[in-house]
Amino acid sequence: MNAIIVLVEPEAQGASEVSRETLTFARDLAARAGGAPVHAVVAGPAPDEAALLAHLGEQGVATVHRAVDDRLSAYAAAAWAAAVVDAAHSASAGIVLAAGTPRGNEILAHVATRLDVAMAANVVEVDGVDPLVVTRQVVGGSALEEMRLDDAVAVLSVAGHACDPVPVESPSHPEVTTYSPTLTDTDLVARVARTEEAAADESAALTSARVVVGAGRGAGSADGFKDLLELTDLLGGALGVSRVVTSLGWRPHHEQVGQTGSRIAPDVYIACGISGAIQHWAGCQSAKTILAINTDPDAPMVTKAHYAVIGDLHEIVPAVNEELRARLG
């Protein structure tokens, strides 16, 4: 049985949440494919190798392929892809997965091109394993495509929040194989030269916030965000906005939630004055609970929400702030 190999993205405390989701997805796929072993491949710096290994054990990984090379100190998609291709060969992998993050999709595009096979981006479900047919998000998640992957190696990224990261009952003790990937100078040309601290930190706050206060055209103007920002503060959350808000220059782009902005999955999303066009829904549909505040009871955001308050956000949000201040003391 051919192995399934997952590119894992490390972060400060182990493996990123979407990588762990992808490992769970891979485990389910492996079970359906007759019990294939799940391998992981890691390239580049990992801040905490022990925590990373613990996460991989929790996900039942059999073997970890750890690429080690000084030239992997700064991110280069082609070099990461070379490392994945080497690991896939030594694992005799029939399926290569990564999380559907910007990096995951970028590296897999390189991997698929190098292997001369198709790639399916943002898969949410496996429909069949022989032949492999997957369902993936298209049109920003508002439509789905069933896609057949019948090349010798199937390459696919798993959409964020397609499943929860579920640990195995008893953690595995993965065998760690370090290796030096075959890198050429060409693989290192498109490489991060330096990192400038900037808005990325703030959009990271948006994607990791437990509570997101959303604002759309209903905010009215660039000056219409005072109460919304206060609500955000009172809840210790982050502000997210719809595309129209950034297009009109009311708020910066890094606050945009949607198909061409951030995809969020907070516990609570409070969508104020947002109609809920497909572009926006693509970015907020993974919120666990959605509360819509809107003047239009028929707006898609209201009908798709779990809870709603009908009315003008400029009346409702200040009243909620006042109530919160009173209760918080």
């Binding site: 009908t303 308050v309 003008d312 409702i316 009243a319 109530e323």
Partner: peptide, 14 residues
């Protein structure tokens, strides 16, 4: 969707 109310009066329910 569960409608919590209309206007500022809905604040306590929110």
């Amino acid at each position: 969707v569960e409608i919590l109310g209309a206007g500022a009066d809905a604040a306590p329910a929110v």
